[in-house]
């Protein structure tokens, strides 16, 4: 399983430095230059910690302020009314909306992104592949407010037909039942988010597929495998964890997306059984919609919901990092 082709170019060191030597080097405190440099870089790390601690303290403080005044259960309540005489607000609707729209986005985006990545690395003519990956990467940088405008003006009207069709054939399931409103539901948001995270997932997966060991592929080809069999047997197993971590990155963006969701969704504080009917909401969208008119108390409540989003995103990122770490061991890259 030696895939680190880069390392092949460098002749192996005659005698690898011993454990003790490495430790001394790592401490690096022997020379003044080293000491200064270590101090600088450690200082930066500490600076980062301080900022984070300050933000965390700020968030927690204001969240606790809000939640302690909440007259109803913060987790299960289905309304958002922090400014009433008896403040009552809960995140159930937001959790549902955020999770559902992100799941839809992932279900659509991951297979397509893998497809595009494979297309670029293994199917497209080489002349097409390069420019294509440029274009895909550029699209990762389109500001979300522009996606929002496009989603509301161009995408949503196009979905009317699709929604009608889904309702005709799958309406009996309940979850794809459509009352015929404007197509601005969690499903629409899911599709838009899928389009937004496609470039991210694609570009990371593409890099992973490109690293797939050439030897394996050539060996498989030599045995008479078709191109699909080569991909299924040597490229996909190699790239699986990479694709998962790419998807997690995409999921992270989908969870926190604000402006695009706020422009496209027709939000309301209720949980709809049907994915096609307007309603629901996401954390980030709710913060953006409610923030400007909110009083101090309202802002605190929104910050509390932000803290929850924060924790969810953290879990997703943590998961991605664990998988990436496992992959690093697997591929034999430097620790």
């Amino acid at each position: 399983m030696d895939i680190s082709t880069k390392n092949d170019a460098v002749p192996p060191p005659v005698s690898p430095p011993s454990e003790a030597e490495q430790k001394r080097a790592a401490r690096g405190a022997t020379r003044p230059g080293d000491r200064i440099f270590l101090g600088l870089s450690r200082g930066s790390g500490i600076f980062l910690l301080v900022i984070m601690a300050a933000i965390a303290a700020f968030l927690t403080y204001r969240s606790v302020l809000a939640i302690s005044k909440d007259e109803s259960n913060f987790v299960t309540t289905l309304e958002w009314n922090p400014t009433a005489a008896e403040p009552s607000f809960g995140i159930a609707v937001l959790v549902y909306g955020t999770v559902i729209s992100s799941i839809i986005a992932m279900v659509i985006a991951v297979p397509i992104a893998v497809g595009i990545a494979l297309f670029i690395t293994h199917y497209a003519p080489r002349k097409l592949g390069g420019p294509l990956s440029y274009v895909i990467d550029l699209l990762a940088a389109v500001p979300s407010i522009v996606y929002g405008l496009w989603g509301a003006l161009v995408l949503a009207p196009q979905l009317i037909g699709l929604f009608g069709w889904l309702d005709d054939y799958f309406g009996w399931t309940g979850i794809l039942d459509w009352q015929g409103g404007a197509p601005r539901s969690l499903f629409t948001v899911g599709i838009l988010l899928a389009i937004m995270i496609l470039p991210i997932i694609t570009s990371v997966s593409r890099e992973v597929f490109r690293q797939a060991p050439l030897m394996h592929q050539e060996a498989a080809l030599a045995l008479g495998a078709t191109r699909w069999e080569v991909i299924r047997m040597s490229v996909l197993p190699f790239g699986r964890s990479g694709v998962i971590s790419a998807s997690m990155l995409g999921l992270g963006r989908a969870l926190g997306e604000t402006m695009a969701v706020a422009t496209v969704l027709s939000p309301s504080f209720e949980i709809n059984a049907s994915l096609l009917d307007p309603g629901g909401g996401t954390f980030a969208q709710n913060i953006a919609s409610k923030f400007s008119e909110a009083s101090e108390m309202g802002r605190d409540a929104l910050i509390a919901s932000g803290l929850v989003l924060f924790v969810i995103t953290l879990l997703v990122n943590g998961g991605a990092r664990m998988i990436i770490a496992r992959r690093a061991e697997y591929s034999g890259a430097n620790a």
């Binding site: 300050a54 933000i55 992270g252 913060i287 932000g306 924060f310 969810i312 990122n317």
Partner: peptide, 17 residues
């Protein structure tokens, strides 16, 4: 750990801070 935490900050929260 905190770098990971920081990637998860909703942008409006950073602004509020």
């Amino acid at each position: 750990f905190f770098v990971d935490v920081m990637t998860g900050i909703p942008s409006i929260v950073a602004g509020l801070f």
